[in-house]
Design a protein around this nucleic acid. Structure first.
Lengths: 241, 241
DNA sequence: GTCGGTAGTGAATCTACGA
DNA sequence: CTCGTAGATTCACTACCGA
């Protein structure tokens, strides 16, 4: 686990050392107006009014769309440099930022291979229309990928977000049913990079499935949370062996 | 049912007479190279080699991406003119054209409200990666919509394509489990427009759910198929009453 | 009818090969 | 070298048929 700005830390990493990039950048959506978007932090947008949990806030979520594309393409281009040929890249996004994120992925030099759906069975209904109970995962590769592997993954995953005591981050992803399946695109025994590690769900899934993990997180708080979580996973799997 | 080019026919229709637009334009995807896309017809692209069914072909599926956006925005802008304030618009697309289609929807003047997922349980697997077993439905509205209706629709639908004798068009959508649910966004008793009607699944669903239907189809063959199908539905529901 | 085995299929994607 | 076509691959599900 590194602590620091994703772009800055990525530039320090050696080229062609990583087999997959799996990450969930700050979405910078939610709120159609500039004033909504430029609220100082993410909690006003993602946390519903009466949910008074004490999750720490995260910053870096107040770019407008053009600079979001520019910034994310820089990050993804660095990820491409750091990754080996044939490496996979999975980027989470919501419906609003999907077009911008697909631009950034391709500007960053990745070959867009498809869009995977994460279906959240539990979500707030929307009166008078359709529920927004899916997130999207853009799948790209560093050039052609190994199509000879005996690997067949579904295109739609259904899993609920962690809740209660399990919940450490406001955009935390479920490890079982989602992250542990996603990491399997990575070649066996490879190294997985997450430049926006958050509370470390990608890392937990990676270690569980026998991969190495490199994480970067800007927030000092979450960096500590993730490090501790990964230490626990490593310790428990050391006991297993 | 009208027969003719969508854009030409739409221009003849009176303004503000329709309560929902639900349609599935030709995707113009399929094939990464220009030569793949510009194949004369759709069957060569989408139908696998040994499937020797006798479904008629369709054309108008060979634009490049820029002209696809330009053309589709013109069509959707006309749809906006034809629709009443607060009307809904649902446009099918695949993962490859989703960004372009969302541009066209918004250029056409619609307010993008979300992306609905159609999960297809039956699809070819993909070796070494994720299956492409979802299509996407972009949801837009003509200005603000009626948020007071007692209507709560899911954001993810799971339904299989019609097959066997039920199958009349190579891109036919399932009526049960998908189209009959989608049409419910339309205000009760309203009129639904489909400028790319194909074999008329949208119309069948609309009539079943008690809506009026206006369809446009370029192909003379499919226009006949759809008209006959809708006549059958109308006849059978007349018997019901 | 009901059940169970079988054959067939898919808005795909990649590789190989020939022009 | 580029462009274009033909062939092979694969899993989950469904229509169909026979018992």
């Amino acid at each position: 686990m590194y602590q620091g700005d994703a772009l800055a830390v990525l530039r320090e990493l050696p080229a062609a050392t990583v087999d997959a990039v799996i990450t969930d950048p700050p979405y910078n959506s939610g709120g159609r107006t500039m004033s909504d978007r430029t609220k100082a932090s993410a909690r006003g947008k993602y946390v519903s009014g009466d949910a008074c949990h004490d999750l720490a806030d995260f910053t870096g979520d107040n770019r407008d769309q053009r600079s979001y594309i520019a910034w994310l393409s820089l990050v993804l281009a660095e990820c491409l440099r750091v990754s080996r040929p044939g490496a996979h890249c999975l980027v989470f996004t919501d419906w609003r930022q999907l077009p911008a994120t697909s631009d950034a992925l391709q500007v960053g030099g990745w070959t867009w291979q498809g869009t995977v759906v994460w279906h959240k069975p539990v979500a707030r209904p929307r009166r008078g229309g359709f529920k927004a109970n899916a997130e999207f995962i853009l799948w790209g590769t560093n050039g052609p990928y190994d199509g000879k592997r005996d690997l067949y993954l579904p295109g739609v995953f259904s899993a609920s977000q962690p809740s209660g005591r399990q919940r450490r981050h406001i955009t935390q992803k479920p490890v079982d049913g989602l992250m542990r399946e996603l990491v399997k695109v990575c070649a066996p025994g490879g190294t997985i990079l997450d430049p926006f590690a958050g509370s470390g769900s990608t890392g937990e899934a990676a270690l569980h499935e026998g991969y190495d993990f490199v994480g970067i997180e800007l927030s000092e708080h979450y960096q500590r949370v993730a490090r501790q979580r990964l230490d626990e996973v490593a310790a428990s799997s050391a006991v297993d062996h």
